[in-house]
Simulated assay, not measured.
Amino acid sequence: MSAPRRALVLTPALLLLVACTGAGPAAPAPPVAVPTSSVAASPAPAPARTVVLDPGHNGGNGSARAEVTRQVPDGRGGTKACNTTGTSTDAGYPEHAFTWDLAGRVRTHLEAAGVAVVLTRSSDDGVGPCVDERGRAGQEAGADLVVSLHADGAAASGHGFHVAYSAPPLNAAQSGPAVDLAGDLRDALRAGGFPTSDYTGRDGLAPRSDLGGLNLATVPAALVECANMRNAEEAAVVSAPEGRERYAAAIAAGIRTFLAGLPA
C-alpha cells in the first residue's frame, strides 16, 4: 500500500519569515500530514423547492360579475363559474382579504426556510384569475406543490378547518401525493391548536370532485378551508393579525413537512 498523501502547510510565522529575511527563505518546516480520510466532503446542495400559494377569490370580483360568472373547464369534463366573491364575517371582513394577508404570511415563513414561492394573484384589488388558471399554476411554475387558501361560510353553529383534495383522482399526483399533502397540512393545523371541522369532511380531510383548481392540478395540490367565518369565535381569530399569523405558521409547517419527504 502506498504512503498516504501529505500536504505542505506554511504557518503565518513561516510566511512572515520568508517575506522579511534578506538571506533567502528559511528551511521549510516539517510537512503536516492531512489524511485524506479526515477531509469531509462538502454536502450536496439541497434541491431548490418551489411552492404555489393560491389566495382564494380577489377584491375586484364583486364588481366584475360578467367575468367571474363566465364558464370555464372544471377538470372533469364540465364547466363552472370562473370564480366567486367568497364569503365574509358577519362584521364584514371579507374572505379575499383574509386569504391575501394569509398568503403573504405563509410566504414569509417559507422564504425564510429557503423555499421559492409563487402567488396566483399579485394584489387584492384585481379580478380572478379563474379556477382553471389557478389549477394550472403549479405545473406552469414547475412547482413541487400548490396550496389554495380559503375560509368557509357555513352555518354559524359549525366550526373548525378542513383540507380538501381532488377525488376520485385524475392523475398520479392526485392519487397519493396530494392526499399526503392534505394530511401534512391537517396535522400541522392540529398541532397549531386548530380544531378539525365538525360540519363537513372527516377527521379534517374532505375529498372533493367539484373543485376545478384541484381537478386540473398535475402536481400535488390541496385546499385549506381555515375556519368558518360565520362562526363568531372563529371570525374573531381570522380577523385578528395574531390569529392569521397562527394559521400561517401552521400551514407553512405542513408544507415544509411535505417538502422534506420528497426525494432529493
Rank of each mutant, 00 (worst) to 15 (best):
A112R: 15
E111V: 14
E67A: 15
V34C: 05
G24K: 07
L110R: 06
G114E: 13
K80F: 03
G78W: 07
G75Y: 12
G24P: 04
V115Y: 12
P25Y: 01
V117N: 04
W100F: 07
P73C: 07
L119N: 09
A44T: 08
R49L: 13
A112Q: 15
N61C: 05
P47H: 03
G59N: 00
T87E: 00
P35N: 10
V32C: 08
S122W: 02
P30T: 14
H109W: 12
C82V: 03
D101I: 01
H96Y: 15
T89Q: 11
S88C: 03
A40F: 11
V68Y: 02
P45V: 10
A116N: 02
G126A: 10
T120L: 12
S38H: 12
C82I: 02
A66T: 12
H96L: 04
H109I: 08
W100H: 05
A41P: 00
H57E: 01
T120G: 12
A44W: 06
V131P: 06
D124K: 04
A81V: 12
A64V: 09
P73F: 08
A103N: 01
Q71R: 06
A40E: 11
V131Y: 13
P129A: 00
V106E: 06
S42F: 02
G56M: 02
R65D: 11
G75P: 13
G78K: 07
A40I: 09
V117P: 02
P94A: 08
A48Y: 10
A33G: 10
G86A: 02
V72R: 01
G75H: 14
R107M: 04
E111C: 10
A40C: 06
